[in-house]
Lab assay of single mutants.
Amino acid sequence: VLHDLRQRFPEIPEGVVSQCMLQNNNNLEACCRALSQES
């Protein structure tokens, strides 16, 4: 999931992506929604 998200959101730091995964229990859809608001 992390690799997938890193490719979709290259401009977001890995730490932020990891934190997002923890908050969303590694749910790819939820992470994508959260990160798209972030970027």
Rank of each mutant, 00 (worst) to 15 (best):
V1S: 11
L2N: 11
H3N: 10
H3D: 11
H3S: 13
H3M: 12
H3K: 14
D4K: 14
D4L: 14
L5G: 04
R6P: 01
R6L: 13
Q7R: 14
Q7P: 00
Q7T: 11
Q7I: 11
Q7H: 06
R8I: 06
R8Q: 03
F9R: 02
F9A: 05
P10S: 04
P10R: 00
P10A: 00
P10Y: 06
P10C: 00
E11W: 10
E11F: 05
E11A: 05
E11Y: 07
I12A: 05
I12T: 08
I12P: 02
I12R: 02
P13I: 06
P13L: 00
P13W: 02
E14T: 05
E14Y: 08
E14G: 01
E14S: 06
G15Q: 14
G15P: 12
G15C: 13
V16W: 03
V16G: 03
V16C: 04
V16M: 11
V16L: 08
V16S: 04
V17W: 01
V17C: 04
V17Q: 02
V17E: 01
S18W: 12
Q19A: 15
Q19T: 11
Q19M: 12
Q19I: 15
C20E: 11
C20F: 11
C20L: 11
M21S: 03
M21R: 01
M21C: 07
L22Y: 09
Q23P: 02
N24G: 01
N24E: 07
N24T: 01
N25K: 12
N25G: 10
N26C: 07
N27C: 01
N27W: 01
N27M: 00
N27A: 04
L28Q: 05
L28W: 12
L28E: 05
A30W: 02
A30K: 08
A30S: 06
C31Y: 01
C31D: 14
C31P: 04
C32A: 09
R33H: 10
R33L: 09
R33W: 08
R33C: 06
R33D: 08
R33K: 12
R33Q: 12
A34I: 12
A34L: 06
A34P: 01
L35S: 02
S36D: 12
S36C: 07
Q37R: 12
Q37L: 13
E38R: 14
E38Y: 14
E38G: 11
E38M: 15
S39T: 15
